[in-house]
Design a protein around this nucleic acid. Structure first.
Lengths: 150, 150
DNA sequence: GGCAACTAGATTGTGCACAATCAAATTATG
DNA sequence: CATAATTTGATTGTGCACAATCTAGTTGCC
């Protein structure tokens, strides 16, 4: 079968829909997380960093950046704010002095307890089923992998 | 059937996946758009504004903000940059002097021609089929609508 | 050892997102 | 008409994203 040709102008309109949907969704999620995280004193990207540390323990800035695809220009000031807030401690490695290892403080580790109910709130707020969330995550992941290899 | 109970800790890990997927996808799209738009001299959010103007013609800042869910704190400086670049012209309305109408300049309107091939490039770069893109957009839209009503 | 290549972070500068606040204009209401 | 409430943008301040550049430390190779 021959696919129907789609004119450029049509695609421009569809693009409007798609890229806007993603942009809007990203900010809508951000807004709800912002509210949910306010009482924990975390911003959304800070929460991402904490999730990494809660799950995988102390690790260098480099490793955090790779998992979240963030560079040092974003992470350095973010980690300094987390450190100023007493959530983490940064420590230059003894073996390789170029490397800085980020540890949770006691307060940072304790914060995990209060973060536990957050995901359920968010998931409920999306109005999507677990199955749909899996589908969404799968499509996003495939798109991201593909886009990253351009 | 009774759904299996999912422990909080499990959800925290899933949350890691979901919110990170969205965040990463948003930035992955952003990166590819950034490259595609560089030669047009537009940033991604500026492109969103131009899409709105190309599609719906001159309109007040308020209307643009509603369509893109952006407030004046974001739009005001963005529109000033677009105006400085000669893409748009801002004009205070005669009937309601609180309102500022944004018009395309000739250069801004002409830019549409060069933007036409962009969506096809992006769509190809995602590696998703048209059908999958529709599914993705649908899920994002539903989640966004739901999240906005929290 | 000595020098080049590389790596980890930090810094700087631009632009976006959003909350809070303000000014000016318009509309509603008594 | 006069005042209050609302609406539209602009401004300010904080934080994130990212490119470009820099420093310091490490590794490879002769």
């Amino acid at each position: 079968m021959t696919p129907l040709p789609v004119p450029d102008a049509e695609l421009l309109r569809l693009d409007h829909q798609v890229c806007f949907s993603l942009h809007a969704a990203s900010r809508a999620f951000g807004g709800v997380y912002r509210d949910a995280l306010k009482e924990l004193g975390l911003t959304y990207p800070q929460y991402l960093v904490m999730l990494v540390l809660w799950e995988h323990g102390p690790q260098p800035v480099k490793a955090i950046g790779e998992q979240l695809r963030l560079d040092s220009g974003t992470l350095s000031p973010l980690l300094k704010r987390l450190e100023a807030a007493g959530r983490v401690h940064r420590e230059r490695s003894a073996e390789d002095e170029r490397s800085v290892t980020v540890h949770l403080t006691k307060a940072g580790a304790d914060l995990r307890e209060r973060a536990l109910p957050v995901p359920r709130k968010i998931m409920a707020a999306t109005g999507l089923s677990i199955e749909e969330i899996r589908t969404l995550r799968g499509l996003l992941r495939r798109a991201t992998d593909s886009l990253d290899n351009v």
